[in-house]
Nucleic acid binder design. Structure first.
Lengths: 396, 396
DNA sequence: CGGCCTTTGTCCACTCAGTGGAGAAAGTGC
DNA sequence: GCACTTTCTCCACTGAGTGGACAAAGGCCG
């Protein structure tokens, strides 16, 4: 199917598209109230958008006491593909132009198998979603990868946990395969975008989004925009020193936060505790599955295992120490905690909060909410869809 | 004397004023090359600026092979006042509209004497500068204070080292006294603005400016703009934990960077070393002056005193540890070190560099210059002048 | 049902910022 | 003195945007 390739011709049209995306269908009249445009001008721009097909008029809005208005909405046939490649699994979702998730698949997959194998998988998942009827084709795709990205080109750079991905032209290649525009970004940044669009961060201009999964990263939003840094590695907080002369880390240093607390570190510490007989609960799980994961620790903690709880608390304290420093430095209006370990839930959150509120200055923490992300696994894919829609809804 | 109060009427005029400020006098023709405007439009806007008096035409430019062009420059009579209030001294300077320093005074002064006493001093210094003939009056003033500021209102908030300043309406009060527009900001942010305008950071969009004086702070520039944070306390890195269970700090925690390295901490450690007989050089200075300051440590180090050098190196290492974390997080394109301790010079810089390059990931440090600020004590006052000129050179 | 009100959508004359070309003004170089 | 270049001014023209008039469409109420 031939997809839309139109782009807004000017800033007014871009503004309208963003409004329709974020606030849903709207009447001409109400759009006129929000945008600073005369009715005439608005009518002209809306007509042009209708011509491009990006926007359609469907039915009449409810009366506000006079003539009923025609409803304007983004073309309901538009489809975005959101892909969130994690270290150990992939999420693929389809959204409409309002970024509502219409279909969502998740599969375990080791990112170390390399870009070719991963994208084969991603494309087959996308095909499966198409076959399920939620989409006939895609008008754009956003891709999140678990490592730094040279954003303008859409190419991963020196990703420590992604051997074989360095310099792989993700944007170029996927754009070819999918036949639509593609944007690539760090998965953490996309999680931040997702929470900003549809989650807890809707009303905040400056916030941090800490993702604790296999690794640890942090999305930075300044004045509503994602800060990616000079080389695209901003937010790479997993290798900030949390414990002087602590555990050795894959990066070559000692005491990195990631070496002390992350999905991988937690599994390692849990296995050690089990073997040392400090936790019957964990030992039972180790014997049953032949291995332990962060989920096992979460389950054991939920079952009241004190060793598991201690592991989570200590990790939260370490993470809180690092976040406290970032809060002093950046003075955000909100801190969001997300990622795979949100299963650890409020035990983790409480430990982080305690540490941050204790260690940062009152002026910075006084009115600082620290909350769990509310979108879970969909944050990444929604953020991915938003990334590409932001691109397509801007003048070329 | 009646001062100019005109402001640019639109974005084009603002653009022109900024160009004239940053690149100096210019011909109409050359301005036309830089701005995206037709000759006609440019002529109209320049004429209007001439009418306001913000800009004057003086003489003819050199020929470029044809008719000679009239030179356009910012009104050479415009004067900005830049005030940099430190913890232990005040800098006051007068600049022209191109932010060149025409006169500069410095006086020791304890900020804890409170706003009334300090501003009395500042006003008398400003009067002295006026009397010296560099200015007849001021068209605007920028003020830097050593603590967080609620920027839109120009009011210090909860400044730990500035008792008596909390909530004092600095902007309001000084605007009354001086009879001109005033803007207030954290001194560290102004140092960053200064280095951005006329120092080492001229070409960098994202950078950090670490000021080590009586305390430690960090100016954050994102995309060319200063990031002040949600409550104006961004960059307050002096209270990031550098040493677990380290020295107690005035803020109530232990191990804050500021408690281990800053002008005050360095003086304290030096005095202790002197009393313990570890450094004859420092002991001699202690005996001579009855006390020690950071400058004494610098002098002792310059004289080859190993204890003094060790103190500086250790402080640099601590600072480097914190900066390494910030570099991982923020991924700046440049780090500037400034403040009173730049007297410690390259010993300090080397220690910081070593630590940052060792502890941060190669992707973030690969092309990261870490340099000393090149403006010294004038960075703050130039930044202050720039703050107010940015304000006055923007449409009202 | 039929006025009378409100809201919505369309049309159109008018304003105003901005463009680009013509040509005068002011120099340079031979 | 003449040809050429650059600067500056003038002016007709374009095109975006405005705001008012008016038609269309519906609700409210006697």
């Amino acid at each position: 199917m031939r997809r839309m390739t139109a782009r807004p011709a000017n800033a007014h049209q871009a503004r309208l598209l963003h409004l329709l995306r974020d606030d849903g269908p709207n009447s001409r009249a109400q759009l006129g109230d929000r945008v600073e445009l005369s009715r005439s001008k608005l009518a002209v721009e809306v007509d042009r958008l209708l011509e491009t097909g990006l926007v359609v008029a469907d039915g009449l809005a409810a009366s506000r006491g006079g003539r009923r208005s025609h409803n304007i909405r983004l073309n309901p046939g538009l489809r975005f593909l959101g892909v969130d490649i994690g270290a150990t699994s992939v999420d693929v979702a389809v959204t409409n132009a309002e970024l509502e998730v219409l279909g969502h698949l998740n599969q375990p997959l080791d990112v170390r198998e390399g870009p070719v194998a991963v994208f084969e998988q991603v494309l087959s998942m996308a095909a499966k979603l198409r076959a399920s009827g939620v989409a006939e084709g895609f008008d754009g795709a956003g891709i999140g990868v678990p490592g730094p990205v040279r954003f303008p080109e859409g190419v991963p750079v020196a990703p420590p946990i992604m051997p074989g991905w360095d310099g792989f032209p993700v944007r170029e290649a996927l754009s070819q395969e999918l036949g639509c525009p593609v944007m690539v970004d760090n998965d953490v940044n996309l999680m931040a975008l997702g929470e900003q669009h549809a989650g807890v961060a809707r009303t905040v201009g400056d916030f941090l989004c800490v993702k604790i999964g296999t690794g640890i990263g942090c999305g930075i939003v300044v004045g509503g925009d994602v800060h990616r840094g000079t080389t695209g590695s901003a937010g790479d907080i997993g290798h900030i020193q949390a414990v002087p002369d602590g555990h050795p880390c894959v990066c070559g240093n000692r005491g990195c936060l990631e070496a002390h607390f992350s999905g991988a570190a937690l599994a390692r510490d849990a296995a050690e505790a089990a073997r040392q007989g400090r936790s019957p609960e964990l030992a039972a799980r180790l014997a049953a599955n032949g291995g332990l994961s962060a989920a096992d620790v979460a389950a054991a903690a939920a079952a009241g295992d004190t060793t598991a709880l201690d592991l989570i608390r200590e990790g939260g304290t370490r993470t809180g120490q690092v976040i406290a420093g970032l809060v002093s430095f950046f003075n955000p209006g909100l801190v969001v905690i997300g990622g795979g370990v949100t299963g650890l839930g409020h035990t983790l959150l409480a430990a982080i909060r305690t540490q941050v509120y204790r260690q940062s200055l009152p002026l910075a923490t006084g009115n600082l909410p620290i909350v769990l992300g509310e979108l879970g696994a969909t944050a990444g894919v929604i953020g991915a869809a938003r990334l590409i829609s932001d691109h397509l809804f801007s003048p070329a």
